[in-house]
């Protein structure tokens, strides 16, 4: 195995594009290094992107935020403007792993690892985040939701790297939230995750909404029925019940060591409802 730490993004793309196919991007390494310990892991090249200019920076622009692919999640909560704009996204990213893992793990890595249970992905999808990708053919920007295609698989072509995550500037009266269920209080992989992002009209009713579930299907589930239930409401009990029912209906999990189908379905509804209430409150809503 070869280790490279290129200084430019073009160089990184070249290295990956010309590799034998067993090449991996290293940002925080909190997933990659665990995989590397496996007896069956085979890598010929690891490209560390942390020396590339800008990869470690959070940039606030007129359109929103550009979060470099190597920004550790711990740095997100230290960025006051980002926390103010997207508290749910930051919360979700900060739920990944321990303090030690937070020092290293990145949202881009969380996305590219393509685990169905990734914590930051439902929140990013709810927030309409995009990924800026660079590859041998130049740059392209796609919705975060379109990056993972199946567990462990992404839509990135050979030689492509996520350069940055783009979060839009939230409109007035916007609130987002992410909740996950784990058996302990820390250190677990999400059994269910639920993210809600909504914006209120001037009259205090929900104008736009996105409800996204994680860990209950091979990829994140955007629950349009739950979002529809929220639209035009002030989050009455009935609305919340509808959100819950819609989330349960959209949940399509498996039985595994972390939870049962029955449990995940039920808790997806509970978390969807609770996340909606938090997002509504953050948007300034009053029931």
């Amino acid at each position: 195995m070869r280790y490279e730490s290129p200084a430019t993004i073009e160089n990184a793309v070249d290295l990956l594009a010309n590799s034998d196919g067993h090449a991996f991007v290293l940002a925080g390494g909190t997933d990659l290094l665990v995989r590397m310990k496996g007896d069956d892991f085979n890598a010929s090249l690891v490209v560390d992107i942390k020396s590339v200019d800008g990869m470690g920076q959070i940039e606030e622009t007129a359109d929103g935020f550009v979060i470099g692919a190597a920004v550790p999640c711990a740095a997100l909560s230290e960025h006051a403007a980002l926390v103010a704009a997207w508290p749910g996204v930051v919360e979700a990213a900060n739920l990944i792993g321990s303090t030690q893992v937070q020092s290293r793990c990145t949202m881009s890595g969380n996305l590219c690892n393509a685990s169905p249970a990734a914590d930051s992905v439902p929140a990013m999808v709810a927030a309409n985040a995009q990924a800026r990708i660079i590859g041998p053919d130049g740059r392209r920007t796609i919705d975060v939701a379109d990056v993972p295609t199946a567990p462990g698989q992404t839509s990135l072509a050979k030689g492509e790297i996520i350069e940055a995550i783009l979060l839009p500037k939230p409109g007035a009266r916007t609130g987002d939230a992410y909740l996950r269920f784990i058996p302990r209080t820390e250190m677990d992989i999400a059994v269910v995750g639920a993210a809600v992002n909504l914006t209120l009209d001037t009259d205090g009713t929900v104008q736009t909404a996105r409800v996204v579930l994680g860990a209950v299907a091979p990829s994140v589930v955007v629950v349009d029925a739950a979002a529809d239930a929220l639209l035009g409401s002030k989050l009455s009990e009935d609305t919340l019940k509808s959100v819950e029912v819609a989330c349960v209906a959209a949940s399509n999990p498996i039985d595994d060591k972390r939870g049962t189908v029955e449990f995940r379905n039920q808790v997806a509804g509970v978390l969807g409802r609770r996340a909606a209430a938090i997002a509504f409150e953050r948007a300034g809503g009053q029931s």
Partner: peptide, 16 residues
């Protein structure tokens, strides 16, 4: 065995 590690064999952590 499905959970031979501290990630999924869940011993109590400090915050529990």
């Amino acid at each position: 065995l499905q959970n031979p590690g501290f990630l999924d064999y869940r011993i109590p952590v400090c915050s529990d």
